[in-house]
Write a protein that binds this DNA or RNA. Structure first.
Lengths: 216, 216
DNA sequence: ACCTGAACACCGTTCAAGT
DNA sequence: ACCTGAACACCGTTCAAGT
């Protein structure tokens, strides 16, 4: 049976989920696929690129909602409120997108760390940021600002989720802590993310006002 | 001449600035200090801890402003507006703190990446987040929310700065790009950071209002 | 086209033994 | 207390040669 690019990717994700990023080595991946290490380099030029492919696999689906198959168009029933071109619930859509990305990262061990490394190496797809930017544009933001807002929100999603995930790993791996100054009370799972997301969206909502004011 | 912990740290930062994180190996650091690799392990238990010490060195100073030596107390001149206990310019202070942290990270090659790794490993000091939280409390936020806001803002600072820094490195290392979809127009240096910071602070400012509304 | 065999040039970490 | 010498157990990557 010949090895296909997709098999390498799937094998890598399996090792990631089961043993974590530290144990995801090219040699270990090769032996789990019953192949010599060098064989992997026919399918991927290097490890960084393989990690970026994992990142895309994890996030790209979250960035493109299932297109919500219009539930078999019932031509007789007129949709209420569906005629306005401008999406009134842009904030709901933006928040939903952000949560989908967080969930996708959390659904794989060390997912946020892998993604962070891939984006730092500038090898992963910009689809997630573009999806966020599109939601901002739906909210009436000019494209340039939407791009910046999307990048800012995505930075937050990656960083915050990485933080949560490393906290999880520390907790499961024999937690002791609650030491000296635990930065006040640690928020429960997801509370911190939701709070930061709320701040961000509140900031976007306040933007038209802020433009007249003086930003600090 | 005996090696001291501080010398190891200084040597590591020198290699980081000159050659980058990829070239900062324990063996290379040892030979630059004229010592065997094993010697480093008397001063630091492992490489991760050394990297965390670098992170603290880079960020702790930025988190604790120079205390603004009260310019030789002139007891005769009464300070105008200085009697209010509540800091009215909390947003200015918060933004200034965030900028100091960004600047500190940018002042060392791969600084944001080193910090990101250290915080992911949960080995770096929480002083930066605590400083941000204190500024939020000065703005009237309850401690629990201030902690969450500080974590969120710090995640943003780390992520966005890492993004900028990796972009810089790509630009200097033979930039081609401006390819297919450059996520609209790339912001000029610092513009992206300021915009996201403005969103975040706008969100904090809008918090009391938002608490009555329904967050999405 | 896809993979093996085998090497190259490294890593981080440990630890007895020295001074 | 601080470091050497030397090893252990790995890495990612390359590349002629095979099929």
């Amino acid at each position: 049976m010949q090895l296909r690019r997709h098999d390498v990717l799937a094998g890598a994700i399996t090792i990631l989920d089961e043993y974590g990023l530290a144990d995801l080595t090219m040699r270990r991946l090769a032996s789990s696929l019953g192949v010599q290490p060098g064989a992997l380099y026919w399918h991927f030029p290097n490890k960084q690129t393989l990690l970026a492919a994992i990142t895309d696999e994890i996030l790209t689906e979250a960035a493109t909602p299932p297109t919500l198959m219009p539930p078999t168009p019932m031509p007789s029933t007129p949709m209420p409120h569906s005629s306005t071109a401008d999406n009134a619930a842009w904030d709901v859509a933006l928040a939903a997108l952000a949560r989908r990305m967080r969930d996708a990262l959390l659904s794989h061990r060390d997912g946020a760390e892998v993604a962070s490394a891939s984006y730092a190496a500038r090898l992963a797809s910009d689809a997630p940021q573009e999806a966020l930017a599109a939601a901002c544009i739906d909210g009436g933001m000019p494209p340039h600002e939407a791009g910046m807002a999307a990048r800012a929100l995505f930075s937050y999603i990656l960083g915050q989720t990485m933080d949560e995930q490393s906290r999880m790993q520390m907790d499961s791996h024999g937690a002791l802590e609650e030491s000296a100054s635990p930065l006040f009370e640690s928020p429960t799972a997801g509370e911190g993310f939701e709070f930061g997301l709320g701040l961000f969206i509140g900031g976007v909502r306040a933007l038209p006002t802020a433009r007249d004011l003086q930003l600090p």
